[in-house]
Design a protein around this nucleic acid. Structure first.
Length: 472
RNA sequence: GGGCCCGUAGGGUAGCUUGGUAUCCUUGUAGCUUCGGGAGCUAUAGACUUGAGUUCAAAUCUCAGCGGGCCCA
């Protein structure tokens, strides 16, 4: 069995780079650092993920919008913390044609400052609320650190939901809905994750609080896939997003945002992939079942007809199937589709036709079975579900085995992945631990975070648990 | 922010120390035979990251840019 040159378990980072190239996801040869070309297959996977997000947005009554890429400097500068947080990583446009611009424009690093001046116009009365919008666009951040396909890039394929509410409580309900969206979405992607409330010094620039969605990669580093922010009225005041209530009084909106990015694809590649290539959960796979005709001279027609039959049956059941009719040998096709991560492969040859059966192969386990033609569709459906569950369980094992709650720094030092230590609430204690463990704070667990044990740095009673990990 | 390494056809490489004709595999194209795990034969196409310097002569030596990878903070 040919496999990647670099094994996933031996050198995850190298393996990841190799897979991204081999599977035709992106082309890193574009001559600007961190700006990669989406190749057809990579883009197809990304748009499938986007579509799952869209479905969640539609289900929860969000409206899709599309704001301009360019933001005037004056709009950007209205919220002070926000500028501080993003100022050092924005791209500026200072010239247009032959003219120097009177006011500079910037490429959105995120769209608060593009949207909120307009929200201020849109929202007049309580009847306009809640306003629930989202867009899927590219954003730009001038990363100075090492870039990595899908994981750290300078042009980011980005999902952002922005909502406005009558008060804090209604915004809090939105946060709950956001958590529910995460639950449903990541289950479809077979990606187990954890939610952490970011510490004060690490929250989104301008937010009241930030909840991060992190997954654990097989390199034992965490990857932040998304964030949910409660803004309170931090942005609505400078951007003057206010409404007239039933009582005739004017109030500022309370806002939330929800952001996710192409990192989801990075996680799908990194977490589910193996030394033969990608393994895509059926919900994302553009092709869920690939049919490989095994052609012998003189028997082309029967074999292709049998493929067509099954293909039609599968389509009727809403299963995305594809017949690979390319003029290359079957073995070649096997490797190709394995690399692309297609969940199930069906082989149909003259022998099978005689026996009224087909050969079914699972991508995740490589299990091969002959199944009767009549029950093929049902078995395929079942196997797709099993595969999806198996991916989730494997990933969940990785996460659960590598998230540990301990009381001392010495214990934490010996652990890979994510550790939870008691925290007294003092910033310097957390930073000290970051230093010693050579990791970052992820934040406090959202649930079950009560802690009475003493802080391993200062010895004062802990108030919560704090998570630390090496992260991307 | 600091340091180290690298850049040769579409992909992977040899050559660089000691300057002189660029190696092999894969891929692409055309044709015939093939097809249950990367088929065979024949023909053919394709490269020294950019700029400056040293030199009779630079893929090779020096410097800078751009790009990539790694380590430390």
């Amino acid at each position: 069995m040919p496999e990647t040159k670099v094994k996933k378990t031996e050198d995850f980072n190298e393996w990841y780079n190799e897979i991204v190239e081999l599977a035709d996801l992106c082309d890193k040869r574009y001559p600007i650092k961190g700006m990669n070309v989406w190749r057809p297959y990579g883009w197809k996977l990304m748009t499938h993920v986007d579509q799952l997000i869209r479905e969640e947005m539609i289900r929860t009554d969000h409206q899709e919008v599309n704001f301009p890429l360019l933001i005037p400097e004056s709009s950007f500068k209205k919220e002070e913390e926000h500028i501080e947080g993003f100022g050092s990583e924005v791209y500026w446009i200072s010239h247009a044609g032959l003219n120097k611009l009177e006011e500079r424009w910037l490429l959105r690093p995120t769209s608060e400052t593009a949207m909120y001046p307009i929200f201020s116009i849109w929202i007049r009365s309580h009847a306009d609320l809640p306003l629930k919008t989202f867009q899927i666009v590219n954003t730009f951040r001038y990363e100075t650190k090492q870039t990595r396909a899908f994981i750290r890039v300078r042009e980011i394929h980005f999902f952002e939901a922005h909502t406005c509410h009558v008060d804090f409580n209604d915004a809090e309900k939105q946060i709950q809905e956001d958590k529910d969206i995460a639950y449903r979405l990541f289950e479809k992607l077979s990606l187990p994750y954890i939610l952490s409330k970011r510490p004060e010094w690490d929250k989104f620039a301008g937010a009241f609080y930030t909840i991060s969605i992190d997954v654990l990669m097989p390199s034992f580093r965490t990857l932040q896939l998304g964030s949910i922010h409660q803004y309170k009225d931090n942005f609505s005041k400078p951007y003057e997003i206010s409404f007239e209530g039933e009582d005739g009084k004017h109030n500022y909106c309370h806002q939330t945002t929800y952001g996710m990015s192409e990192r989801i694809l990075g996680a799908l590649v990194g977490i589910h992939g193996d030394n033969k290539g990608l393994v895509m959960p059926p919900e994302v796979a553009p092709v869920q079942v690939v049919l490989i005709p095994i052609i012998f001279r003189g028997e082309e027609k029967v074999v292709l007809e049998a493929c067509d039959d099954l293909n039609i049956k599968l389509s009727k059941e809403g299963i995305k199937s594809h017949i690979d009719k390319r003029d290359i040998t079957p073995g070649n096709k096997f490797y190709d589709w394995e690399l692309k991560g297609v969940p199930l492969r069906v082989e149909i040859g003259p022998k099978d036709i005689k026996n009224n059966q087909v050969v079914l192969v699972r991508r995740d386990t490589a299990e091969k079975q002959s199944i009767s033609n009549d029950s093929a569709v049902n078995i395929i459906k079942e196997e797709l579900n099993k595969l999806s569950k198996n991916l989730y369980e494997t990933a969940n094992r990785l996460l659960n085995e590598n998230i540990n709650r301990v009381n001392t720094i010495d214990e934490a030092k010996n652990l890979k992945g994510i550790v939870e230590l008691p925290w007294c609430g003092i910033k310097d204690c957390a930073l000290e631990i970051e230093n010693i463990l050579d990791g970052n704070t992820l934040g406090e667990p959202i649930e079950d975070n009560a802690c009475n044990n003493s802080c391993p740095v200062c010895g004062k009673p802990g108030t919560t648990w704090m998570r630390y990990a090496k992260s991307y």
